[in-house]
C-alpha cells in the first residue's frame, strides 16, 4: 500500500522533496540490479571458459600420455628388432649365406658403376 498524503499540508511538501530522491534511489537500485545480473553472466561465462579449458587440458594430457605410450612401444619394438638383427648377423647361417651371395653382390655392384659394362 503506497503512503497517503493530505493535499496542501506539510506532508505534501515533504513528499514533493522525497519524490526526486525516490526516483534517484529507484534508478540506482535498478542500475545495481542490472550490474548484478551482468556480473552473474560474467561469472558463469568465466566458469564455463575455465571448465572448457580444463577439459581441453585433460584431453591434451590424455593425448600426451597416449603419444608417450606409443613412442615407448615403438622404442621397445625398435630395440627388439635391433637385438634380432644383431642375433642374425652373428649367426653362422648369416655368415655362410653372406659368403655364398658375395660373388653375385659384387657383380651387381660393378654393373651399377659409372663406366661399367
Amino acid at each position: 500500500m503506497p503512503p497517503t498524503s493530505v493535499p496542501g499540508t506539510a506532508s505534501d511538501a515533504i513528499a514533493g522533496e522525497l519524490e526526486p530522491a525516490d526516483d534517484e534511489l529507484a534508478a540506482t537500485l535498478l542500475d545495481l540490479r542490472h550490474r548484478q545480473l551482468t556480473m552473474r553472466d560474467h561469472i558463469i561465462g568465466q566458469e564455463a571458459e575455465l571448465g572448457r579449458l580444463r577439459a581441453e587440458v585433460r584431453h591434451l594430457r590424455f593425448e600426451n600420455q597416449r603419444i608417450h605410450e606409443a613412442v615407448r612401444q615403438l622404442s621397445a619394438e625398435a630395440q627388439a628388432l635391433r637385438t634380432e638383427n644383431t642375433a642374425i648377423r652373428t649367426s653362422t647361417t648369416w655368415h655362410v649365406g653372406r659368403v655364398l651371395v658375395a660373388p653375385i653382390a659384387r657383380v651387381k655392384r660393378s654393373r651399377g658403376q659409372v663406366g661399367g659394362p
Binding site: T38, M39, R40, D41, H42, I43, I44, G45
Partner: peptide, 10 residues
C-alpha cells in the same frame, strides 16, 4: 533468468 545472469551483453 536471474540465476544465469540474463542475456550476455557482450
Amino acid at each position: 533468468f536471474d540465476e544465469v545472469g540474463g542475456l550476455t551483453e557482450i
